[in-house]
Amino acid sequence: MDQIPNTHSGSAQATLIDRDIAHIARVMRTSLRGDLAGPILPPAYWRKRLHQLLDTGSLSHAQLCTVDSLLLQLDQYEAEPQKAWDTLAPATAALFPPPFADSNRQL
């Protein structure tokens, strides 16, 4: 999302910023977790979005604290090595033995 324009009144701009922060807080972690191909959106994207909010210069104390918390989460994500797929526990081929696997078994 582009930087929030300053054409809105103070309360309207604060509401837009609140919504943007809430959206980022909701989806950032899921996006970073991603799928087999990696993160859906990289940490650099989220960092840019958060810095754009900081650049508006009109964040309340609570908004600043939330943005700071989200930036710290990004720092933590980047500092911790991500699990490689080869270190994950292997999937089992079958949870239960196939029926009639024992040929000596009488019914």
Rank of each mutant, 00 (worst) to 15 (best):
N6I: 07
N6V: 07
N6W: 04
T7G: 03
T7L: 03
T7P: 02
T7N: 13
H8E: 11
H8A: 09
H8M: 09
S9R: 07
S9Y: 11
S9E: 10
S9K: 08
G10W: 03
G10E: 11
G10V: 12
S11Q: 15
S11N: 15
S11G: 08
A12V: 14
A12F: 12
Q13A: 04
A14T: 04
A14Y: 03
A14D: 06
L16H: 07
L16W: 06
L16E: 10
I17H: 02
D18G: 08
D18S: 15
D18P: 04
R19K: 15
D20L: 06
D20K: 13
I21R: 01
A22W: 13
A22Q: 14
A22K: 14
I24D: 03
I24F: 02
I24C: 03
I24P: 02
I24N: 06
I24S: 05
A25N: 14
R26E: 13
V27H: 14
M28G: 12
T30F: 10
S31E: 15
S31Y: 12
S31R: 13
L32D: 08
L32V: 10
L32Q: 11
L32K: 09
L32F: 08
L32G: 09
R33L: 12
R33G: 08
R33M: 11
R33C: 09
G34F: 13
G34Y: 09
G34A: 10
D35P: 03
D35E: 06
L36P: 01
L36V: 10
G38Q: 10
G38A: 05
P39D: 10
P39Y: 11
I40S: 15
I40G: 13
I40F: 15
L41Q: 15
L41K: 15
L41H: 12
P42Y: 11
P42I: 09
P42S: 10
P42N: 09
A44H: 02
A44I: 06
A44E: 08
Y45A: 13
Y45R: 11
W46A: 04
W46R: 03
R47T: 07
R47I: 05
R47L: 06
K48E: 06
R49N: 02
R49V: 08
L50Y: 01
L50P: 00
L50A: 01
L50D: 01
H51S: 05
H51T: 05
H51E: 08
Q52W: 02
Q52Y: 01
L53G: 00
L53H: 01
L53Q: 00
L54H: 03
L54R: 09
D55H: 04
D55V: 03
D55A: 08
T56N: 07
G57E: 04
G57A: 05
G57W: 07
G57H: 05
S58V: 12
S58N: 11
L59V: 01
L59Q: 01
S60I: 07
S60E: 08
S60P: 05
H61C: 03
A62F: 10
Q63K: 10
Q63G: 08
Q63S: 06
L64S: 07
L64G: 10
L64Y: 04
T66S: 07
V67L: 02
V67G: 01
D68Y: 09
D68H: 08
D68S: 09
D68P: 01
S69N: 12
S69T: 12
L70G: 00
L71C: 02
L71S: 03
L72M: 12
L72H: 13
L72N: 14
Q73L: 15
